[in-house]
């Protein structure tokens, strides 16, 4: 059962990065769009994510619940030592979720929009940035549970070049996912505009990815040997790079679904390479006493019921979610045909 739970944990994290990430990306793209094109971007985005945007963020909650029910020690260690970036991320989540609704549901469209929009845009940037920092700090052995002073215990655990560069990389991934997603949604005359954007985000992702390696080198984190030292990890990274190249050539063709699948595949491979190399350890500590999904799992009974709850839950959720996406995709195509 423990493996069922781990698969669910991994999948919800992946889906959160993909769906939630595309969602954050929408705001990030708006930031990097000139004022004149903003409303076009915004409208296309809203049509694309409106119906499912709430569900996109549920994956994070599922992941957290799995952590605290199944792996309480991991959940609490991260909560204690990464308190500050977690709070920053939460503030981002609050600001963004509410600003999204406010700007779309305010009955009067007036100057208040000038308040909501920047909040939405900047929190779209901040939230994935801190998410990346949190993820990077957990896996890079910077958490020092023996630290005696405030700074080494609660600040340097996450405020270092490596974590920050992964934060930036996460932001670029979100922007990338959003542009790929939007291409399929855009009306014909806007397509070239969005294709140009997609191209630029792909360059950005590659640049930020390189940055992560530089930062890892600087912080003495053996990132390269983690990823390239392992056949599976290496395969995953190669697959990710190939799919990026294929995508580059596919951008011009009208194959939005294929593009999205490739983008999803690519991110899945990156996540795989990042997590596989030290599986089952998930939180690496400075003193080497790593927290592992296998040795730090909860008692068997708790894991079993959690596993069943997840299985039963997915029987209800997945078909409904699939149908939701399907219906609105269908309607969209019908409308466009008219």
């Amino acid at each position: 059962m423990i493996y069922v739970v781990i698969v669910f944990l991994w999948t919800s994290i992946l889906l959160y990065i993909l769906l939630g990430g595309a969602d954050f990306g929408a705001g990030i793209i708006e930031l990097f769009t000139s004022k004149g094109n903003r409303s076009k971007t915004r409208k296309t985005m809203y049509e694309a994510i409106g119906p499912i945007w709430e569900a996109n963020h549920m994956w994070l909650i599922i992941a957290i619940v799995i952590l605290f029910v199944g792996f309480p020690k991991i959940y609490t260690t991260v909560s204690i030592y990464l308190h500050i970036p977690l709070v920053c991320m939460l503030l981002g989540i609050i600001a963004r979720g509410t600003a999204f609704v406010f700007r779309n549901y305010d009955a009067v469209k007036d100057d208040m929009q000038k308040v909501y929009t920047p909040i939405f845009i900047y929190s779209s940037l901040i939230t994935p940035f801190f998410l990346g920092i949190i993820a990077a700090s957990s896996v890079s052995g910077q958490i020092d549970v023996q630290a005696q002073d405030f700074l080494s215990a609660y600040v340097f655990s996450w405020l270092n070049w490596f974590s920050v560069s992964v934060g930036v990389f996460t932001v670029s991934i979100c922007g990338f996912l959003a542009t790929i997603f939007i291409i399929g949604q855009a009306a014909d005359d806007d397509r070239s505009f969005f294709i140009g954007k997609a191209r630029r985000t792909i360059y950005t992702v590659m640049f930020c990815g390189a940055l992560v390696f530089v930062a890892a080198y600087h912080e003495n984190i053996p990132l390269a040997s983690w990823i390239f030292g392992d056949t599976l990890g290496l395969t995953a990274i190669i697959a990710a790079s190939i799919s990026l190249i294929i995508m580059f050539f596919l951008l011009q063709r009208k194959k939005p679904i294929l593009l999205r699948l490739l983008a999803g595949f690519q991110v899945a491979m990156i996540l795989f390479a990042a997590t596989y190399s030290h599986f089952p350890d998930i939180v690496l500590l400075k003193n080497g006493a790593n927290l592992s999904l296998l040795t730090h799992q909860g008692q068997a009974k708790a894991i079993d019921t959690l596993g069943y709850a997840l299985l039963i839950g997915s029987i209800f959720i997945l078909p409904a979610l699939g149908y939701l996406i399907y219906i609105f995709q269908q309607k969209k195509e019908v409308q466009e045909a008219h």
């Binding site: 119906p51 499912i52 709430e54 569900a55 549920m58 909650i61 599922i62 619940v65 799995i66 605290f68 029910v69 199944g70 309480p72 020690k73 959940y75 609490t76 909560s79 204690i80 909860g298 008692q299 708790a302 019921t305 959690l306 709850a309 997840l310 039963i312 839950g313 209800f316 959720i317 409904a320 979610l321 939701l324």
Partner: peptide
């Protein structure tokens, strides 16, 4: 954290089911 470390696995059942309920709610609302 100390509370959650011990309580999480014990009282987590309703929270994991709740996850399902929220999800369905969010989908239905969509």
């Amino acid at each position: 954290p100390t509370f959650m470390e011990h309580a999480g696995p014990i009282f987590g059942m309703p929270f994991s089911l709740e996850g399902t309920a929220f999800f369905i709610e969010a989908i239905a609302l969509g």
